[in-house]
Amino acid sequence: MITSNKKIIFTGPVGAGKTTAIETISDIPAITTDEYASDMTKSRKPQTTVAMDYGLINLGDAERIHLYGTPGQERFDFMWDILTKGGIGLILLLDNTRKDPLQDMRFYTNSFREFIEQRQMVVGVTRMDLQRKPELADYRLWLEQLSLQAPVFEVDARERADVILLIQALLYALDPGVTT
């Protein structure tokens, strides 16, 4: 019998690596609803998630951690409280090669503000292998300006170790007393 179901939510702009990150650590093939982008003026990649991503980490028979990825297209239709109920925390992935990563950070932290304040956020900046600026120091400063306390790391969503570190940081930030 399943006794515990908790979720971790991945969010961030189009192409930041949400689907990839979930696929990288999920026990089951990630279920996603990727479709070929139809709006080419906005699209920077051929495939985008139109609905949600889903992955799973099994912790024995009785427990599982669900991984949800929000669709990357920016919409104002929903307050994300609909998604975040019962969530452990939020992983915000930002793509360093996008036009205005600060604006992305503002948008997502604003959308999830209440959840972040109640739980915890960790930020992963992807594609720093392609573009070095802005730097992590800039992201740290922006977070400070937004009055948010969150760890920020350079990550590659394709690297399992990087994605795991995001989750480790999330759990330790929530409770530094956790031991393994």
Binding site: T19, P29, I31, T33, E35, S38, M40, R44, T97
Partner: peptide, 27 residues
């Protein structure tokens, strides 16, 4: 509506900021 994407990673073009993806077929 659901489509399962195979796990194997396909090489994707690395699109940088200054490049816009050209028209891709929708289906």
């Amino acid at each position: 509506r659901r489509r399962t994407v195979p796990r194997t990673r396909q090489p994707q073009p690395l699109v940088s900021r200054s490049e816009e993806a050209p028209d891709a077929p929708i289906t």
